[in-house]
């Protein structure tokens, strides 16, 4: 009930409504890809290339044009939505969960455990993320889920750092000390008083992180250790065709727009959610 009310008030902002609509479209597209996509994403059409072998620009048959191998770009983007969403949501979700757990534990419990966790985080930060991802991906043979896991392993570090410092600053606020004087247990303080203050930060990371995750997936795909072709993802579509940017700009443009629109949508929704969950902002907008 409360969730529905929050949802409805959020939709009152036009930008948020558009963003939500876009997310729904992408989710639906990825679920119903076989029915929505006009062609098989991996089928190489003979008539999909010009006689010189160049890809076709958008036209009536291939709505968004074709790629370097004569495959239908629209179908590939629709199927790619599946990959990108899974990577974006799952990988980033795992990263945020790990980062939050580590950050809160280190910031709230402190002591030797906190020390150990934060030194581990520092170590991970100092280590080149890409190198780590390459190493992990090389050991575990790449598949969609492994790529998601690898990305999560690399991305939780920043979240942990931010949540750690937030936790420390909130735990130092006077109302937390007051809670102790009325007899509140540590768990109660953590869940009832600290966590609600961390929600905005967590939400921002959960939404902002999606765009970086999608891009990291694209990078890994480009290096040959990400999602393996021919399985399409928005990232690997761009990287496959980036050297043809001047002659076939649509190949980069459409998946690029999709990535930007998706991450922007998540950001907008995340912002709105954060504001909605903050009672001190009520009636101020």
């Amino acid at each position: 009930m409360a969730a529905l009310r929050i949802f409805l008030t959020m939709c009152r902002r036009p930008s948020v409504a558009v963003a939500l609509a876009f997310i729904v479209i992408v989710v639906v597209a990825s679920l119903l890809a076989p029915w929505i996509a006009p062609y098989d994403p991996n089928e190489q059409f003979f008539e999909g290339l010009t006689l010189e072998g160049a890809p076709l620009p958008p036209n009536a048959t291939y709505w968004l044009g074709t790629d370097l191998l004569g495959r239908d770009l629209f179908s590939r983007i629709v199927y790619g939505a599946r990959t990108s969403l899974i990577i974006g949501i799952v990988a980033n979700g795992i990263a945020v969960v790990i980062g939050t757990l580590v950050g809160i534990t280190a910031g709230f419990v402190r002591g030797w455990l906190g020390m150990a966790l934060m030194r581990l985080t520092d170590l991970m930060m100092a280590f080149p993320a890409l190198l780590l991802a390459i190493a992990l991906a090389a050991i575990l043979s790449p598949s969609l889920w492994i790529v998601a896991l690898v990305i999560a392993m690399v991305n939780w570090v920043q979240v942990a750092r931010v949540i750690y410092s937030e936790t420390i600053s909130i735990a130092a606020r006077e109302f937390v000390a007051v809670e102790r004087t009325i007899g509140a247990s540590s768990l109660r303080i953590l869940f009832s008083h600290l966590l609600p203050h961390l929600v905005p930060t967590i939400l921002v990371w959960a939404t902002l992180g999606i765009s970086t995750t999608v891009l990291l997936e694209a990078t890994l795909s480009f290096l040959g250790i990400g999602v393996q072709p021919p399985l399409p993802s928005w990232g690997n579509i761009i990287f496959e065709s980036q050297s043809y940017f001047t002659s076939a700009s649509w190949l980069v443009l459409f998946p690029g727009v999709a990535i930007v629109a998706l991450s922007l949508s998540f950001n907008l929704v995340g912002d709105a959610l954060r504001d909605e969950l903050d009672p001190t902002l009520k009636g101020r907008r």
Binding site: E174, E179, P279
Partner: peptide, 26 residues
């Protein structure tokens, strides 16, 4: 205990019912 700064001593995200009622709950 009552503290000097009533702005800092109340969790801004909790309603008065939750804040004043918390000791009773605990």
């Amino acid at each position: 205990m009552i503290f000097q700064d009533p702005f800092a001593a109340l969790n801004p995200r909790k309603s008065i019912l939750e804040l004043v009622g918390e000791p009773l709950l605990i």
